[in-house]
Design a binder for these strands. Structure first.
Lengths: 162, 162
DNA sequence: TGACACTGGTTTCATTTGTAACTATTTTGC
DNA sequence: GCAAAATAGTTACAAATGAAACCAGTGTCA
């Protein structure tokens, strides 16, 4: 199918349009991975991301998890709640600030982490495995710059004067 | 914050984990762009994507739009419905197959397309503008391969025997 | 000290989303 | 030609989501 030029003449070629391609790729990847652990371990994406953070860093507050994973705070809150219900994490109050709590994986949570993490790694390998080291490095560079840009853009508009 | 190794020893370093980084980057980009045309032109993401497809290719069925943009058919259906309500597109029945309809932009829709497309282009420029040509090429290569992989993975599982 | 702004986290509510069921039509196999 | 399977698109329903209100605790500054 060939692009059609309309009267005004400006045509956006989506197949060359990086933001679009990025988003499509990500959504496919997200679906594919989600399926893997969703069906296999009955864990949702948000829950898994919380587990992954805690598995990597040990102990964090909900706030930290949200900041690090760019997850909305209500999403984190709910994910934590479900994981808590499933006895997958340990909550320890912070004496110095009773608003927040220190979260970490319970033995069960750790088990889940230990079983999902390698699967995730394997899946990643299947998707990115045969990408050359150079391409991979370039890919990471671009991801980083665009992440930074997009994040700053988002923040900017957040604090616009009304 | 330094990763903590737990008893079992397997730690997934999310900052090195490409699927994760890809998804985070995409979600930030998506948010940033969404905001641009959402607030400026009161158009949702799905609607914009439909407009973009039609702007580029002229006439398509809902099915084609969905396939090309990897959008769920209900999403396409609803986006088309809202755009139709806003008189932004033209629906023409297909005599040879009355189940489907040929969709294209109405003059109003074209206007919207012509005003959003350059803005999107500009935003993309702001995010990817100063990426070197080589990095950009590498980035595209990787996006393509991973898109193909993830898509085939998704399809595969779709037809699993239950 | 006490009022007031602020922050971590939860909850409520309206919106968005996907799954599955459904309608209308077309295709297939016999 | 016709019953059964398939397909384009819509709709009903339930789950996921984000914005905003909210609660409890903390910081500030007079």
């Amino acid at each position: 199918m060939k692009p059609v030029s309309n009267k005004e003449g400006f045509v956006l070629r989506l197949e060359d349009f990086l933001p679009y391609r990025l988003v499509v790729a990500a959504s496919l990847v997200s679906q594919a991975t989600a399926r893997t652990y969703a069906t296999k371990y009955s864990i949702g994406i948000a829950e898994w991301r919380v587990i992954a953070q805690l598995g990597e860093f040990g102990t964090m507050t909900a706030k930290q998890i949200g900041a690090r994973s760019h997850m909305h705070k209500t999403k984190v809150s709910r994910a934590v709640a479900t994981l808590n219900r499933k006895k997958m994490l340990a909550k320890r109050a912070n004496r110095d600030d009773k608003r927040e709590a220190f979260l970490s994986l319970s033995p069960i949570g750790l088990e889940v982490y230990e079983s999902i993490a390698p699967a995730a790694q394997a899946l990643s390998q299947r998707m990115f495995g045969d990408v050359s080291a150079e391409d991979r490095a370039a890919f990471e560079r671009v991801l980083d710059t665009v992440t930074a840009r997009a994040a700053s853009l988002a923040d900017m508009e957040e604090e616009l004067p009304d």
